[in-house]
């Protein structure tokens, strides 16, 4: 379980996509999500799929990792595909078996929608596969900076994200320890009625909360004695750098969008 936790979804690497600035990757993915809806013909969907496969190739991420990420949504894609096939009754009849009738339009819609969702999931997965959570946090902080004007706590939010990320392994260890301690005392949490089992959560949660809030106070004291006073004038260890790669990536995306626009049916 722990090994899954260390990096989360992130797979370290040194490809073109890995080296992109987190800011450009975030902008890229958000524009891409919107651009996917431009596609409405076979050629445009083919272009989307080709572009996505090209990006995967450029990221040098092993296909296995992407397939792993697809597992939870496979059911959804299959379900929708079948709904489209059985309920869209337009176009020529392609296949008939008893009450089962598959029409051309249904098959086409089913394939289009599956490709659209597949492309969305692959592209967004690629973002988190090639960018560590902490650099996404950094990128987000800079991108959201304009919101400071409306008193949105951008810096605080980013700091909270970093603290939260840092404490994931710590609190997981803690939970593990508490559970083992309670089991050693003979606490029975895996039998009984649903109500009893839900109540059995309390002896786990109380020590967990106590330790989490104790840690919080320790950390707050540590921050105070080091003179933390908000984001103003704070310098950073991890610097973001926008270079030619980022501009190129966004220009390629722009070209794809223009192409999609002209390939619309």
């Amino acid at each position: 379980m722990m090994e899954k936790m260390v990096f989360g979804r992130y797979i370290p690497g040194d490809s073109f996509v890995h080296r992109l600035d987190p800011r450009s990757k975030l902008i890229f993915v958000f524009i891409f999500i919107a651009a996917v809806f431009l596609a409405n013909s076979t050629v445009s969907y083919a272009l989307l799929l080709a572009f996505t496969l090209m990006s995967i190739f450029a990221s040098k991420v092993r296909i296995g990792f992407l397939i792993g990420g697809l597992k939870p949504v496979m059911f959804l894609i299959a379900f929708t595909f079948l709904l489209h096939i059985f309920f869209t009754k337009e176009g020529d009849l392609l296949f008939e078996l008893g009450f089962l009738k598959i029409y051309e339009e249904g098959l086409r819609q089913g394939i289009y929608i599956s490709v659209r969702f597949l492309v969305l999931v692959l592209m967004t997965s690629l973002l988190t596969l090639t960018t560590s959570p902490i650099s996404i946090t950094d990128g987000l902080e800079v991108l959201l900076n304009p919101l400071k004007k409306v008193k949105f706590p951008v810096h605080e939010l980013a700091l909270m994200m970093s603290i939260s990320l840092r404490f994931i392994p710590t609190l997981m260890d803690e939970t593990d320890k508490i559970l083992k301690a309670q089991l050693a005392r003979g606490s029975d949490i895996s039998s009984g009625t649903m109500k009893e089992r839900i109540q059995a959560v309390v002896p786990l949660l109380v020590p967990l909360f106590v330790s989490a809030f104790k840690r919080a106070e320790d950390l707050a004291v540590a921050m105070e004695v080091r003179g933390y006073r908000g984001g103003e004038g704070r310098t950073r260890y991890r610097q973001l750098k926008w270079d030619w790669r980022d501009t190129t990536a966004l220009l390629i995306l722009l070209a794809v969008i223009v192409a999609l626009w002209f390939l619309r049916g």
Partner: peptide
């Protein structure tokens, strides 16, 4: 946000 940023 940390979930979207890729933490499991």
């Amino acid at each position: 946000l940390i979930g979207l940023a890729g933490a499991p």
